[in-house]
Design a protein around this nucleic acid. Sequence first.
DNA 1: CAAATTTTCTATAGACCTATAGAATACAGG
DNA 2: CCTGTATTCTATAGGTCTATAGAAAATTTG
Lengths: 205, 205
Amino acid sequence: MKPKNPDSPRYQSQKRAAVRAAAAVFAEKGFHGASTTDIAERIGIKQGSLYYYFDSKEEALEDVCLYGLQSYVENMDEIAGSDEPFAAQLLAIITNHLGRYRENNEALKVHNDERLYLPPARRSRLKALGSHYREQLEAIIEEARAKGSVRDAIDSHFMAQSVIGMCNGLGELIIRDAEIDAIGLARKTTDLLLHGAVPNQPQGE
Amino acid sequence: MKPKNPDSPRYQSQKRAAVRAAAAVFAEKGFHGASTTDIAERIGIKQGSLYYYFDSKEEALEDVCLYGLQSYVENMDEIAGSDEPFAAQLLAIITNHLGRYRENNEALKVHNDERLYLPPARRSRLKALGSHYREQLEAIIEEARAKGSVRDAIDSHFMAQSVIGMCNGLGELIIRDAEIDAIGLARKTTDLLLHGAVPNQPQGE
DNA sequence: CAAATTTTCTATAGACCTATAGAATACAGG
DNA sequence: CCTGTATTCTATAGGTCTATAGAAAATTTG
């Protein structure tokens, strides 16, 4: 039986547990490699009971992806709204991105790796959130360029993609190795992006 | 029946076709989402006949990953052996990486996204190739640092990871949008990594 | 062209998986 | 404590998938 009014505190808490379990299992085995039995067992219920919380396996994937993306995008909004200088904003963005991998790692990884298996209808909200994120980042870079904090030669669309790709690549690292200092990594990444690898010859544009 | 002596030209050519078909299907649907029927149909044979070329679906995945990685690593060796200055080497590496996405895109994507579904025994050769690649890149950066072409503050291990992650992120872009100029993108990426986003104030380390 | 060999086909066993229905249990409010 | 509701369980239908075996077709070789 499906719940009619899913507002009880018990429902809420089990649903959260189910989403997190799905995140862990999808992250480990991939969407198609994971079974609903795997997810159910992880929260101590039987496979069939899971359908009390999800209409389908696909809905579970959608929930996991949204869960992985949401707080992450919210933080971006806050950073974009602030009046910090460009360097500080970029550091905050990268710290947020990498830090999110440390805490919320499974769900974010699932979003990155598995969201394309969702049918377009289920992907639209995710797409909107993701585009919003990228556009905010682009706008920040563009604004910095207008102010002269970023070189004119930099294409903000391309740089936004690079930053996101770089963070996701490093995120894999963070997930694999629990010892890594995500904050320190964020600092180094920002430094590299801002000042480049090469020592300061008067050569930049 | 399995082939005893798979050396006939026909076998070789069908095997290549099978590996490429598997690459395309795995890239589109993921390893677990793809079926052996999908792969077989793509080269115009029946599902069961595929087992003339692979012992198992997992072996097909291993072959695809190796195919995706090989030429790419070979090129790195050539670059690492050359005497070009650091900037030229980095450009060559990134051009190779992004260009490979343009040509060989499915197999390389499959390696990046699906290799973790292989059992450790099947992953070892891939691991060796991948580590070799990263170590070559690290060595190039380290050497440049010793010569003063790269700032002392740069950690070569971290920078190598960043470069690889950035390229893979941009690779997704290249696969999705056939219009993108991979060479131009490589140039921009190299420029960003070398000189950073910020105009040249005397501030770098 | 006949025999031997390689490649593909048909058919299927056996496993697993999603989603549903209805029964059973746990829990909450009166 | 009793009644109604919320949650979980059991059982299963119906589908798909991998891998194998042996027959059939295609190809090569003598």
